[in-house]
Design a protein around this nucleic acid. Structure first.
Lengths: 249, 249
DNA sequence: GCCAACTCTTGACGTATCGTCATATTTTGA
DNA sequence: TCAAAATATGACGATACGTCAAGAGTTGGC
């Protein structure tokens, strides 16, 4: 038993080692440069061994996306646990998304690849299911805030169902994230700043849905947003800064 | 001159022939199944000839995306020319997007691939620029509606700039489009219908921005939406139906 | 109508990556 | 200690990429 589990631990460790290598290749040179041969070479194992862990490179990408989603889910949970009015909690969730976009920008680009027929077709059903479930969990995280607000009477229930509202919010963030990763010249097009623009649109959308307190009663000023961001994610942001500084040396 | 131009016409024709083949391969089997050898074989030309037209398969995809964007732009222009209140014209633009999503679903999936590092890195600068410009044109199409509404006093100018508003609207549609192409089980998640949900969210967003007439004064009922859709795009929808019927035979 | 110059087309070639599988190596436990 | 089981290896066949020298076709002057 002890021996078996040592072996199992070794395998699990190697699995993560492969994933780490794949992640860095992916971040440095993009999905098209990721190859099983390269991973094997860098990990100092043979190709066959890598194939025992992942039956294709799409599978590696899928598993990396799963950990990225888990990270996002974790940030979202923090936002959910924020004490404050429902509307502020939702705002906190958006901030979590924005923090994720800043801290794990490479992962956001990586996910762009995931959503491609190329990848989805070759992915193992297990990984695909796992990913879909995480997507659903995040959806439900937001839905729970929306439904709390409805129950508390802060949000009218006659205009839209909670599911529809979450779908709209999700589209807004997902779309913004996707557009930003394209690197179009937004400033030239008259967009002041993608982050603040999206928060502004979110606020307007919530106002339009009649989600109290409306933004003119309790506006989300830049200071307040910054404060919320710091309160919730200071440790993460600092850790990321330290990490990037140490990488420069 | 006449001889030269005949040759040029031949080349242009072949170019389109290659693109047609590439499009159908792409639609039937996805980007990963598209190969230069296959295109050459199906077109009954040699590989080298195909490479004289497109220096890589990403270039083919890029050019196909450009025509898809032109199609979308055309639909958008129709919406823009719609006579009616500004807000209704914007709604018409969203309907155009939705019609595009329904009529050219394969193209929507195709564009998912375009937004990938794999493709963007290998694309010729000319095609990339052309595509970015089209994206910008569509952006400006919407921006012109927004600015008209501001000038007419139907939309407050103090809450957000026109650029920020367009960015938000674009995120909303782009995100919804992208999410829908993932094939997640939205019904199970409590989303009634992605199309109507998004229109509802759009209406709320416009309400929140204070864009008059507000939806409670002049609601966009399902009937009205259907009517608008028919008025603007009946010919396109019918043509697509006939086409799909004739394909079944 | 002929030929030299020029343009266009071809497909074999070298390289890269994929995923497989027979063989070699290591581990296990009797 | 050794045979059986588990694991690791890398050579192999297949597919696709992008190139380029050689062949095929075209043009225009004579």
């Amino acid at each position: 038993m002890a021996v078996l589990s040592r072996k199992q631990r070794e395998i699990a460790e190697r699995h993560n080692h492969f994933l780490d290598i794949a992640r860095s290749l992916l971040h440095e040179e993009g999905f098209h440069q990721l190859s099983m041969d390269r991973v094997a070479e860098l990990a100092e194992y043979s190709k066959g061994t890598v194939y025992q862990h992942f039956n294709c490179k799409e599978e590696m990408l899928g598993q990396l996306c799963i950990s990225a989603m888990q990270r996002l889910y974790g940030l979202g949970q923090r936002a959910l646990n924020h004490k404050g009015p429902h509307r502020e909690r939702l705002l906190a969730f958006f901030i979590a998304h924005d923090v994720f976009q800043h801290l794990e920008y490479d992962d956001v680009c990586m996910m762009q690849n995931y959503h491609t027929d190329q990848v989805l077709v070759k992915l193992s059903p297990a990984t695909r299911t796992r990913h879909d479930e995480l997507e659903k969990n995040i959806f439900q995280l937001v839905q729970s805030i929306v439904e709390d607000a409805m129950e508390a009477g802060d949000l009218p229930t006659d205009r839209a169902t909670s599911g529809d509202i979450v779908f709209g919010l999700w589209s807004l963030t997902h779309g913004a994230q996707s557009l930003r990763s394209l690197g179009l010249p937004f400033e030239q097009m008259g967009v002041s700043n993608a982050s603040t623009a999206i928060v502004g649109m979110l606020e307007s959308l919530l106002d339009g849905l009649g989600w109290k307190p409306l933004s003119n009663e309790n506006p989300a000023s830049p200071e307040k947003l910054a404060q919320l961001r710091t309160a919730l994610f200071k440790d993460e942001i600092d850790a990321a800064q330290q990490k990037s500084q140490s990488e420069q040396n």
